[in-house]
Design a protein around this nucleic acid. Structure first.
Lengths: 214, 214
DNA sequence: ACCAGGGTGTTACCACCGGTAACATCGTGG
DNA sequence: CCACGATGTTACCGGTGGTAACACCCTGGT
């Protein structure tokens, strides 16, 4: 039946040790966790990139499928967008460790696992592009806009979701609303602040000197 | 006068060899390019991360300053947003090699240079957050929205700009318009496509089966 | 009964990398 | 004249990804 049960077992071991030691875990460590030695790993996965790739595909597969399904849901547009956003955030929220090690290569990392999820991101961007181009009337620029927006929305959700997962500033629902609001032009529609006279202070590095203006 | 002219010279050498061999260039190679040997590099930069960091700061400094200045420009909101977008895209367009090696760690990379520009991104996100919170009236959710949007817009422009730089699908001006349109809610405002009856085909991997529905 | 073959496992090794210690050299200034 | 700091070197260490060569066991065909 199962053509490669050992492979799954090895991936499980790799998963464990990487979650414990970070993405920079050595092949030796992974092999040891699996109770074996290096050459077997290389027989199964070719090289380190192959292992990381297999691991990443296993982890991103579910999320990708979920997002794809959410994109096809027959809802009103705003509801569908919120549904997709919520699906993505719920996906990364359910396995924060996995997500973190996939996105943040960690200092002292010998081989970048960060770009390992680049294919998954490209796929999500492609899904969004296809959905937009197939469902929204954008005039002559249809194809270009859909492609740009596919990448843009993917990157936007990636960055915002990343920050949200790390600092947890609000509930998932509020986060979904904030992102959907941005996409819905709330930044453009909002009024100017009355106290717009302040001359944009220098603010050298990252010290947030936010005073509530009295 | 110049307290460290040699350091600049070493950075130039590192720049050259990294542009030639990719971000995975070894310290030996960099030292050789500079006509010296490893220990001197370590005396100047501490360790490899220090070198990469110095290099990254040198490269991102100008772009960061330009974006900051663009954000403070006294323009109408849409114009200001377009100005910031154009500034960023012009920045990465002017040095595509540098940008590429900073963002794409390249396969076979021993040390991730990709996250080296993470600080710069955080700074840009902070600038946007501060600008939004200080200039736009967003009601009670002001602070949260500004923070979310700062990250979201940064990630959006990063991803879209990255793709634009690689595939050059259109002029910079059109790209700016496409992104500003997205931020201005054009996705939300556009009408549904009349042929919305097709049941969202599976499209397994990345094969774009875009038929013009002729 | 025998042996061919494939999966699983091992030890021992290589080239190379980041990083460090110890030593040599040169120019300058008290 | 010598102390000193910057600049430079060779030689080395531990560890990493990756490979070669060899050993074991279990199945199955003849």
């Amino acid at each position: 039946m199962d053509p490669e049960p050992r492979r799954e077992q090895l991936l499980n071991a790799a998963d464990r040790v990487i979650q414990r030691e970070g993405p920079g875990a050595s092949m030796n460590a992974i092999a040891a966790e699996a109770g074996i030695t290096k050459p077997i790993l290389y027989r199964h996965f070719g090289d380190r990139n192959g292992l990381i790739r297999a691991l990443t595909e296993r982890h991103t597969g579910g999320l990708l499928a979920a997002v794809r399904a959410a994109l096809a849901e027959p809802l009103e547009r705003r509801d569908r967008v919120e549904h997709v956003l919520d699906t993505y955030l719920a996906g990364i929220e359910s396995r924060p460790q996995v997500y973190r090690l996939l996105t943040h290569p960690e200092p002292g990392d010998p081989s970048g696992a960060g770009n390992a999820l680049a294919p998954a991101l490209r796929q999500i961007a492609g899904e969004i592009t296809r959905a937009v181009a197939g469902q929204v009337d954008l005039g002559a620029d249809r194809e270009l806009l859909a492609e740009v927006w596919g990448r843009a929305i993917t990157g936007m959700v990636l960055a915002a979701g990343d920050w949200w997962l790390e600092s947890r500033p609000c509930s998932r629902t509020r986060m979904v609303q904030a992102l959907a609001d941005l996409l819905w032009g709330r930044l453009a529609a909002a009024a100017d602040l009355p106290t717009a006279a302040l001359p944009a202070g220098p603010a050298p590095t990252a010290e947030p000197s936010d005073r509530p203006t009295g």
